[in-house]
Protein backbone atom coordinates (compact mmCIF):
# COMPACT_ATOMS: atom_id res chain seq x y z
CA UNK A 1 0.00 0.00 0.00
CA UNK A 2 2.73 2.35 1.03
CA UNK A 3 4.82 1.37 -1.94
CA UNK A 4 1.90 1.98 -4.24
CA UNK A 5 1.45 5.48 -2.80
CA UNK A 6 5.15 6.17 -3.23
CA UNK A 7 5.04 5.00 -6.80
CA UNK A 8 2.06 7.22 -7.49
CA UNK A 9 3.77 10.16 -5.97
CA UNK A 10 6.82 9.53 -8.08
CA UNK A 11 4.64 9.31 -11.15
CA UNK A 12 2.97 12.56 -10.22
CA UNK A 13 6.34 14.21 -9.66
CA UNK A 14 7.52 12.92 -13.02
CA UNK A 15 4.58 14.55 -14.66
CA UNK A 16 4.73 17.78 -12.75
CA UNK A 17 8.45 18.37 -12.54
CA UNK A 18 9.87 17.07 -15.77
CA UNK A 19 13.04 19.10 -15.56
CA UNK A 20 14.09 17.26 -12.45
CA UNK A 21 13.09 13.82 -13.65
CA UNK A 22 11.99 13.11 -17.18
CA UNK A 23 14.16 15.67 -18.86
CA UNK A 24 17.15 14.24 -17.14
CA UNK A 25 17.08 11.77 -19.94
CA UNK A 26 18.63 13.18 -23.07
CA UNK A 27 16.20 15.00 -25.29
CA UNK A 28 16.46 15.88 -28.91
CA UNK A 29 17.09 19.37 -30.21
CA UNK A 30 15.64 21.95 -30.51
CA UNK A 31 14.85 22.44 -26.84
CA UNK A 32 12.56 25.26 -25.83
CA UNK A 33 12.52 26.61 -22.29
CA UNK A 34 9.05 26.90 -20.81
CA UNK A 35 7.43 27.28 -17.41
CA UNK A 36 7.62 23.60 -16.55
CA UNK A 37 11.37 23.58 -16.63
CA UNK A 38 12.48 26.96 -15.31
CA UNK A 39 13.27 27.16 -11.61
CA UNK A 40 13.81 30.26 -9.51
CA UNK A 41 15.39 30.77 -6.11
CA UNK A 42 16.63 33.93 -4.42
CA UNK A 43 20.36 34.52 -4.53
CA UNK A 44 22.43 35.25 -1.43
CA UNK A 45 22.11 38.93 -2.18
CA UNK A 46 18.36 38.41 -2.52
CA UNK A 47 18.17 36.97 0.98
CA UNK A 48 20.27 39.81 2.34
CA UNK A 49 18.12 42.39 0.61
CA UNK A 50 14.98 40.75 2.01
CA UNK A 51 16.43 41.01 5.50
CA UNK A 52 17.12 44.68 4.90
CA UNK A 53 13.54 45.19 3.70
CA UNK A 54 12.21 43.51 6.83
CA UNK A 55 14.30 45.83 8.99
CA UNK A 56 13.04 48.82 7.02
CA UNK A 57 9.45 47.59 7.37
CA UNK A 58 9.69 47.17 11.13
CA UNK A 59 11.38 50.55 11.47
CA UNK A 60 8.76 52.31 9.38
CA UNK A 61 5.93 50.65 11.29
CA UNK A 62 7.52 51.40 14.62
CA UNK A 63 8.02 55.08 13.89
CA UNK A 64 4.56 55.19 12.23
CA UNK A 65 6.34 56.74 9.27
CA UNK A 66 4.00 56.17 6.38
CA UNK A 67 6.24 57.63 3.70
CA UNK A 68 8.99 55.18 4.68
CA UNK A 69 6.45 52.37 4.75
CA UNK A 70 5.32 53.27 1.25
CA UNK A 71 8.93 53.28 0.09
CA UNK A 72 9.57 49.90 1.68
CA UNK A 73 6.45 48.45 0.06
CA UNK A 74 7.56 49.86 -3.28
CA UNK A 75 11.01 48.30 -3.00
CA UNK A 76 9.52 44.99 -1.90
CA UNK A 77 7.05 44.96 -4.76
CA UNK A 78 9.78 45.87 -7.25
CA UNK A 79 11.97 43.05 -5.93
CA UNK A 80 9.11 40.59 -6.33
CA UNK A 81 8.40 41.82 -9.82
CA UNK A 82 12.06 41.29 -10.69
CA UNK A 83 11.46 37.58 -10.06
CA UNK A 84 8.96 37.49 -12.91
CA UNK A 85 11.36 39.43 -15.10
CA UNK A 86 14.02 36.80 -14.35
CA UNK A 87 11.60 34.09 -15.41
CA UNK A 88 10.70 35.88 -18.61
CA UNK A 89 14.35 36.28 -19.40
CA UNK A 90 14.65 32.52 -19.82
CA UNK A 91 11.15 31.69 -20.97
CA UNK A 92 10.95 31.15 -24.71
CA UNK A 93 14.67 30.63 -25.30
CA UNK A 94 15.34 27.83 -27.75
CA UNK A 95 18.51 25.86 -28.17
CA UNK A 96 18.45 25.10 -31.89
CA UNK A 97 21.69 23.33 -32.64
CA UNK A 98 25.01 22.52 -31.09
CA UNK A 99 27.96 22.37 -33.45
CA UNK A 100 30.86 20.49 -32.05
CA UNK A 101 34.36 21.14 -33.36
CA UNK A 102 37.10 18.55 -33.76
CA UNK A 103 39.06 17.73 -30.72
CA UNK A 104 41.74 15.29 -29.83
CA UNK A 105 41.27 13.43 -26.59
CA UNK A 106 42.63 15.41 -23.68
CA UNK A 107 42.19 18.72 -25.44
CA UNK A 108 39.16 20.99 -25.10
CA UNK A 109 36.30 20.47 -27.51
CA UNK A 110 34.69 23.68 -28.72
CA UNK A 111 30.91 23.72 -28.86
CA UNK A 112 28.95 26.36 -30.67
CA UNK A 113 25.45 26.71 -29.26
CA UNK A 114 22.88 28.33 -31.46
CA UNK A 115 20.25 29.92 -29.24
CA UNK A 116 17.17 31.62 -30.60
CA UNK A 117 14.54 33.79 -28.95
CA UNK A 118 10.84 33.85 -29.65
CA UNK A 119 10.39 37.54 -30.27
CA UNK A 120 11.63 38.87 -26.99
CA UNK A 121 14.73 40.54 -25.64
CA UNK A 122 17.00 38.40 -23.49
CA UNK A 123 19.98 39.87 -21.73
CA UNK A 124 22.59 38.54 -19.36
CA UNK A 125 21.83 34.85 -19.88
CA UNK A 126 24.60 32.53 -18.77
CA UNK A 127 25.42 29.15 -20.24
CA UNK A 128 27.32 26.77 -18.03
CA UNK A 129 28.73 23.58 -19.48
CA UNK A 130 31.20 21.46 -17.66
CA UNK A 131 32.22 24.23 -15.27
CA UNK A 132 32.68 26.77 -18.06
CA UNK A 133 30.41 29.81 -18.05
CA UNK A 134 29.68 32.28 -20.77
CA UNK A 135 27.15 35.10 -20.89
CA UNK A 136 25.21 36.19 -23.94
CA UNK A 137 22.35 38.43 -25.01
CA UNK A 138 19.74 38.07 -27.72
CA UNK A 139 18.04 41.04 -29.29
CA UNK A 140 14.32 40.68 -29.93
CA UNK A 141 13.62 38.17 -32.67
CA UNK A 142 17.28 37.45 -33.02
CA UNK A 143 19.59 34.64 -32.29
CA UNK A 144 22.94 34.20 -30.76
CA UNK A 145 25.86 31.84 -31.01
CA UNK A 146 27.75 30.98 -27.88
CA UNK A 147 31.11 29.27 -28.05
CA UNK A 148 32.29 27.18 -25.15
CA UNK A 149 34.85 24.47 -24.65
CA UNK A 150 34.41 21.21 -22.79
CA UNK A 151 37.16 18.91 -21.67
CA UNK A 152 37.66 15.52 -23.25
CA UNK A 153 39.46 12.54 -21.81
CA UNK A 154 39.26 9.61 -24.20
CA UNK A 155 38.57 9.00 -27.86
CA UNK A 156 35.21 7.92 -29.17
CA UNK A 157 31.67 9.09 -28.92
CA UNK A 158 31.29 11.45 -26.04
CA UNK A 159 27.79 12.53 -25.00
CA UNK A 160 27.50 16.26 -24.38
CA UNK A 161 27.38 17.14 -20.71
CA UNK A 162 24.29 18.71 -19.20
CA UNK A 163 23.92 22.36 -20.05
CA UNK A 164 22.66 24.89 -17.55
CA UNK A 165 21.05 28.06 -18.81
CA UNK A 166 20.67 30.58 -16.01
CA UNK A 167 20.26 34.26 -15.30
CA UNK A 168 20.31 36.74 -12.44
CA UNK A 169 18.63 39.39 -14.51
CA UNK A 170 17.60 42.12 -13.77
CA UNK A 171 18.68 42.96 -10.22
CA UNK A 172 20.62 39.92 -9.11
CA UNK A 173 18.03 39.16 -6.44
CA UNK A 174 16.79 35.94 -8.02
CA UNK A 175 18.44 33.21 -10.00
CA UNK A 176 16.39 31.43 -12.64
CA UNK A 177 17.81 28.33 -14.26
CA UNK A 178 17.00 25.38 -16.42
CA UNK A 179 18.86 22.20 -17.19
CA UNK A 180 19.20 21.00 -20.77
CA UNK A 181 20.39 17.56 -21.70
CA UNK A 182 20.59 17.45 -25.47
CA UNK A 183 20.70 14.04 -27.06
CA UNK A 184 23.86 14.63 -28.96
CA UNK A 185 27.30 13.15 -28.91
CA UNK A 186 30.46 14.33 -30.46
CA UNK A 187 33.27 12.21 -31.75
CA UNK A 188 36.59 12.77 -30.01
CA UNK A 189 39.65 11.88 -32.03
CA UNK A 190 42.37 9.69 -30.62
CA UNK A 191 45.51 11.23 -29.33
CA UNK A 192 48.59 10.77 -31.48
CA UNK A 193 51.67 9.19 -29.99
CA UNK A 194 54.49 11.53 -29.31
CA UNK A 195 57.37 9.93 -31.17
CA UNK A 196 57.96 6.84 -33.24
CA UNK A 197 59.06 5.46 -36.56
CA UNK A 198 57.97 7.01 -39.87
CA UNK A 199 55.31 5.25 -41.90
CA UNK A 200 56.52 2.38 -44.08
CA UNK A 201 56.84 3.48 -47.68
CA UNK A 202 55.52 1.13 -50.33
CA UNK A 203 58.52 -0.31 -52.26
CA UNK A 204 56.76 -1.14 -55.54
CA UNK A 205 55.81 1.29 -58.31
CA UNK A 206 57.87 3.93 -56.60
CA UNK A 207 58.64 5.52 -59.92
CA UNK A 208 55.16 5.54 -61.29
CA UNK A 209 54.17 9.12 -61.68
CA UNK A 210 50.67 10.13 -61.87
CA UNK A 211 49.27 13.19 -63.32
CA UNK A 212 47.49 15.30 -60.90
CA UNK A 213 45.57 18.42 -61.18
CA UNK A 214 48.13 21.15 -60.58
CA UNK A 215 49.72 24.38 -61.57
CA UNK A 216 51.80 23.58 -64.64
CA UNK A 217 50.30 23.90 -68.08
CA UNK A 218 50.45 20.42 -69.58
CA UNK A 219 48.31 20.35 -72.69
CA UNK A 220 45.26 21.64 -74.43
CA UNK A 221 42.14 19.60 -74.70
CA UNK A 222 38.58 20.01 -75.93
CA UNK A 223 36.15 21.99 -73.84
CA UNK A 224 33.88 20.00 -71.65
CA UNK A 225 30.80 21.39 -70.06
CA UNK A 226 31.64 22.69 -66.61
CA UNK A 227 35.19 23.76 -67.30
CA UNK A 228 35.93 27.13 -65.75
CA UNK A 229 35.88 29.96 -68.27
CA UNK A 230 39.20 31.27 -67.22
CA UNK A 231 40.84 28.03 -68.26
CA UNK A 232 39.76 28.44 -71.87
CA UNK A 233 42.66 29.23 -74.17
CA UNK A 234 40.93 31.93 -76.15
CA UNK A 235 43.76 32.76 -78.58
CA UNK A 236 44.35 29.15 -79.55
CA UNK A 237 40.62 28.46 -79.72
CA UNK A 238 40.21 31.26 -82.22
CA UNK A 239 42.34 29.29 -84.66
CA UNK A 240 40.32 26.11 -84.23
CA UNK A 241 36.71 25.15 -84.70
CA UNK A 242 36.16 24.21 -81.15
CA UNK A 243 37.03 25.67 -77.79
CA UNK A 244 40.23 24.45 -76.27
CA UNK A 245 40.92 24.34 -72.60
CA UNK A 246 44.23 24.55 -70.85
CA UNK A 247 44.76 21.43 -68.88
CA UNK A 248 46.76 21.89 -65.73
CA UNK A 249 48.59 18.95 -64.33
CA UNK A 250 51.04 18.42 -61.59
CA UNK A 251 53.33 15.52 -61.14
CA UNK A 252 52.82 13.93 -57.78
CA UNK A 253 55.89 14.26 -55.57
CA UNK A 254 55.42 11.13 -53.52
CA UNK A 255 53.46 7.99 -53.51
CA UNK A 256 50.42 7.83 -51.19
CA UNK A 257 51.17 6.45 -47.78
CA UNK A 258 49.41 3.23 -47.07
CA UNK A 259 48.64 3.24 -43.39
CA UNK A 260 47.61 -0.25 -42.50
CA UNK A 261 46.23 -1.45 -39.19
CA UNK A 262 47.43 -4.97 -39.86
CA UNK A 263 51.07 -3.95 -40.17
CA UNK A 264 51.07 -2.93 -36.52
CA UNK A 265 49.86 -6.21 -35.18
CA UNK A 266 52.66 -6.46 -32.68
CA UNK A 267 51.40 -3.47 -30.76
CA UNK A 268 48.75 -2.79 -28.17
CA UNK A 269 45.28 -1.83 -29.47
CA UNK A 270 45.33 1.80 -28.35
CA UNK A 271 48.99 2.21 -29.22
CA UNK A 272 48.21 1.18 -32.80
CA UNK A 273 45.51 3.80 -32.97
CA UNK A 274 47.87 6.40 -31.53
CA UNK A 275 50.50 5.57 -34.10
CA UNK A 276 48.08 5.70 -37.00
CA UNK A 277 46.84 9.01 -35.68
CA UNK A 278 50.37 10.37 -35.66
CA UNK A 279 51.01 9.22 -39.18
CA UNK A 280 47.77 10.74 -40.37
CA UNK A 281 48.75 13.94 -38.68
CA UNK A 282 52.13 13.98 -40.36
CA UNK A 283 50.58 13.25 -43.72
CA UNK A 284 48.12 16.10 -43.24
CA UNK A 285 50.92 18.43 -42.21
CA UNK A 286 53.00 17.59 -45.26
CA UNK A 287 50.09 17.55 -47.67
CA UNK A 288 50.93 13.91 -48.34
CA UNK A 289 48.32 11.64 -49.82
CA UNK A 290 47.47 8.72 -47.64
CA UNK A 291 45.08 5.82 -47.38
CA UNK A 292 43.93 4.10 -44.25
CA UNK A 293 43.20 0.42 -43.77
CA UNK A 294 41.29 -0.56 -40.71
CA UNK A 295 39.79 -3.93 -39.74
CA UNK A 296 36.27 -3.02 -40.79
CA UNK A 297 36.85 -0.06 -43.02
CA UNK A 298 39.24 1.17 -45.60
CA UNK A 299 39.60 4.71 -46.76
CA UNK A 300 40.87 5.35 -50.26
CA UNK A 301 43.93 7.54 -50.78
CA UNK A 302 43.30 11.19 -50.48
CA UNK A 303 44.58 14.36 -48.90
CA UNK A 304 43.21 17.55 -47.44
CA UNK A 305 41.41 18.20 -44.20
CA UNK A 306 38.21 16.39 -45.15
CA UNK A 307 40.18 13.25 -45.81
CA UNK A 308 42.12 13.67 -42.59
CA UNK A 309 38.91 14.19 -40.65
CA UNK A 310 37.23 11.11 -42.08
CA UNK A 311 40.33 9.03 -41.28
CA UNK A 312 40.45 10.34 -37.73
CA UNK A 313 36.73 9.75 -37.31
CA UNK A 314 37.21 6.17 -38.41
CA UNK A 315 40.02 5.79 -35.89
CA UNK A 316 37.91 7.36 -33.17
CA UNK A 317 35.05 4.98 -33.90
CA UNK A 318 37.19 1.90 -33.47
CA UNK A 319 36.02 -0.24 -30.59
Amino acid sequence: MKREALRRMQLWAEQRLPALTRYRRPESLPIELHRRRIYIVPTGFGFGFTLLLVIMLVGALNYANNAALLLTCLLGAASTASMLVAFRNLDGLRLITIQAGHAVAGQPLTLQLHVESAGRLHQAVYVTIDGQTQAFAIAADGNSRVVLAVTTTRRGWQPLPRIKLWTNWPLGLFRAWSWLYPQQSSLVWPQAEVGGPPPPLPADDLHRRRLHHGEDLAALRDYRAGDPLRHIAWKVSARHHSLLVKDFEQPEGHQAWQLDWRLLSAMDHEARIARLARWLGEAEAKGQRSSLWLPDEEIAPGSGFAHYASCMNALARLP
Binding site: L57, Y63, A64, N66, L69, L70, A77, T80, A81, S82
Partner: peptide, 23 residues
Protein backbone atom coordinates in the same frame (compact mmCIF):
# COMPACT_ATOMS: atom_id res chain seq x y z
CA UNK B 1 9.84 48.23 -12.75
CA UNK B 2 8.81 50.68 -10.04
CA UNK B 3 5.73 51.70 -12.03
CA UNK B 4 4.46 48.15 -12.50
CA UNK B 5 5.06 47.34 -8.86
CA UNK B 6 3.20 50.44 -7.68
CA UNK B 7 -0.26 48.76 -7.46
CA UNK B 8 1.09 45.96 -5.29
CA UNK B 9 3.03 48.47 -3.22
CA UNK B 10 -0.03 50.62 -2.67
CA UNK B 11 -2.25 47.74 -1.62
CA UNK B 12 0.44 46.47 0.73
CA UNK B 13 0.78 49.99 2.10
CA UNK B 14 -2.94 50.20 2.80
CA UNK B 15 -3.24 46.72 4.23
CA UNK B 16 -0.09 46.14 6.28
CA UNK B 17 -1.42 46.26 9.84
CA UNK B 18 -0.07 49.28 11.69
CA UNK B 19 1.34 48.88 15.15
CA UNK B 20 -1.01 50.25 17.77
CA UNK B 21 1.92 50.91 20.08
CA UNK B 22 5.56 51.13 19.02
CA UNK B 23 7.88 48.19 19.70
Amino acid sequence: LLAVSLPLALSAFVLVPRLSSPL
